[in-house]
Simulated scan of single mutants.
Amino acid sequence: MELMGRLGYTEFVAHGGDWGGVITTILGGRFPEHVIGIHTTVAQPPPDLATDGLTAVERTWVEESRDFWSHRAAYAKQQAARPQTIGYSLVDSPVGLLAWILDKFAEWTDTEDSPFETICRDSVLDNVTLYWLTGTGASAARIYYESHGGVNAFDPGLRVDVPSSISTYPRDIERWPRAWAQERFRRIVRWREPEAGGHFPSLEVPASFIKDLQEGLAAVVAASRS
């Protein structure tokens, strides 16, 4: 909010995925007088919701999302508990940094054998090089520590009342039912489940992602004026 104010914007829309989705949700929840609406690929619900009434597909989403945070999120738990330990490796070895980041591209994309099926090597190298040349591999990891860990980053009581557009990609690391999302996002004006894409849709399916983003933000702007 302070940054947008310095740039001269008193009202704006926000979009984000991954941590950007967390930040976007917090902006919409805490600053409704400034945030017109949000678009996000991350719709984390409040904790401890019951699965009663969910469809079989929605139950699968919940099971897979919980499995991810329980068994495949060691990176997040390491960075939440001891970020500086892994931080030395991330700023000392370009191979170590590449392996750490490429592992996420390999597992979190909508591909069969290799992330390079949808993301070119240069894009991955650009991503890793940005961390390497700026020496931010360690500092970037500290958001997990400062937020006490991935899925628990939200205030359980946070609610978003501004218009929200949510897109859930089929191979993302976590997917939550709309009924659950509505417990946090009180005014969902657009809900989409694209046919392709994983955790990095802007890199994996850029054309359809841009169209989805444009339509999502248009929907929240229109809803804010109605």
Rank of each mutant, 00 (worst) to 15 (best):
L98F: 14
H39Q: 13
T118W: 04
A222Q: 13
A141M: 09
W176T: 08
L97G: 03
A223R: 09
R159M: 05
R59P: 01
E204G: 08
H15F: 10
N127D: 09
T55Q: 08
E117Y: 13
K77A: 13
F105L: 00
S65E: 02
I23A: 09
V35Y: 12
S208D: 13
H199D: 06
D48G: 11
W191T: 07
R225G: 00
D18Y: 01
W69A: 11
R225K: 14
T111V: 14
L27Q: 07
V57N: 13
Y9L: 07
E2A: 11
T51V: 15
R190I: 04
R192Q: 15
F12Q: 01
V13F: 02
L125T: 07
E63G: 00
R186A: 10
A73G: 14
G5S: 13
R178S: 04
F200W: 14
G135A: 01
F154H: 12
W100R: 00
G20D: 05
E204H: 06
V35N: 10
F185R: 09
F105W: 10
I23C: 09
R66V: 12
S202F: 12
L130G: 10
G53Y: 00
E107G: 02
R184Q: 05
R225T: 13
Q78C: 11
G37I: 01
S139M: 02
L213Q: 00
A50D: 15
F12A: 06
F68Q: 12
L203A: 14
Q182G: 10
T41S: 15
F154M: 08
E64M: 12
R175C: 01
L97A: 06
T40I: 06
Y145Q: 12
Y131E: 04
A196D: 09
A81I: 12
A196Y: 13
Q78G: 05
A141N: 08
L27N: 03
T111D: 08
V124S: 03
G96H: 11
P206H: 06
I210Y: 08
G5Q: 12
V151C: 02
W191H: 05
T40H: 08
G16H: 04
A43I: 00
E215K: 10
G17R: 04
